[in-house]
Design a protein around this nucleic acid. Structure first.
Lengths: 192, 192
DNA sequence: CGGTCTCTTGACGGAGTTCAAAGCTAGTGG
DNA sequence: CCACTAGCTTTGAACTCCGTCAAGAGACCG
């Protein structure tokens, strides 16, 4: 079978049935996006119009805090979905930017056509329900980690849970994601 | 129309069509639960088997941190869903307890029957997809607040955003939810 | 090689925690 | 309906984790 999105389609098929013909239908609703390192999918102030699936590469979502320092709130690598779901639902300006950490290949699903897509391919509603629930589970876990771990434990927990990340992503982004300063994280590294 | 879950059904009907006959079908999949103040829906270590909808009252989800202090991570009041979605998906023991803050009426949806329910009433999959996405948006916003606000700002933001909560829920639970000690929150109250 | 990101070091300060104890409130049972 | 008690909130003092600032050392890219 030929598709422009082999990993994307394969991922969906891990959860629902999708004939080759239905793949053709799906392809009408999605857009491929190739991003260079540091390129943006959306910038703060824009309305978020797509749900993004990472085929290859790595994205991050961040906002500027009161000191105009970038605060990374989420990463997404292969097979993960990323979007500002608040902006998406309300079609309100996003307070986040979404940027490629490295060269990335992304599938963009137009949110305004999502209902139409689901009426054509009802099994995709099932797939998306599972993805949203999975993301929610991850987000609950994230909040728990923030509340139960000290900054030092956050760091060691992250290092042992996602060692791959460490090579791919600049330190200061990880520090920001973990809610600590690059300076303090540098001190923590030294301790081990 | 007669149902045991007027608010529950009304809430679903805000998002999808549901005939009176379909309501009868739905009712086979759900259980009413009435809880006294401090009663538990699940306790730490048990597997979470239901998704809970709050008809009346208030629930909280919490875990015990390393000092055996209760750490509240979520509240749920009328029309909100609450569950440990990690435990639900994996059918693994939950690290949380879910408890009624006040006398509450809850609708429990058996997760093991959910796929069957969706095959009988496909529009409920749509409803749940929306609920999961809404909860995810709320969780993203929560993480953003944690990262951008100081403890003092967390407090004032919470007070102005959810003044009703303040009457209903003990201070120490709110303090815990906001990630600060009761002692420090007491000091913050004094400042205003 | 030059310049711009990125990471490290160390001194200092303050927001927020910890501990202990007293004061208050509300729920329960008599 | 009152009184008792367990649970909740407040106070204050000591302490500490972690952020801030400033400056220097690498590292990566054109």
């Amino acid at each position: 079978m030929s598709t422009n999105y082999p990993d994307f389609i394969a991922h969906i098929r891990r959860y629902v049935e999708l004939s080759d013909q239905e793949v053709k239908v799906l392809e009408k609703y999605v857009q491929p996006v190739e991003l260079k390192r540091r390129e943006y999918l959306i910038k703060e102030g824009e309305v978020c119009r797509n749900n993004y699936f990472v085929e290859r590469g790595c994205l991050r979502m961040f906002f500027y805090n009161d000191k105009m320092v970038e605060q990374t709130t989420q990463f997404a690598i292969e097979t993960w979905w990323l979007s500002d779901y608040f902006s998406l639902a309300r079609q309100s300006p996003s307070e986040y930017s979404i940027q490629a950490v490295e060269r990335s290949f992304v599938v963009a699903v137009d949110y305004s056509l999502q209902d139409k897509l689901f009426s054509e391919l009802p099994q995709l509603e099932h797939y998306f329900r599972i993805m949203m629930q999975r993301a929610l589970a991850a987000s609950q876990l994230r909040v728990k980690m923030i509340y139960q771990l000290s900054k030092e434990e956050m760091y060691t927990h992250f290092v042992s849970s996602f060692p791959q990340f460490f090579q791919r992503v600049p330190q200061y982004m990880i520090a920001s994601y973990l809610g600590l300063t690059p300076e303090y994280m540098s001190e923590l590294r030294k301790r081990r």
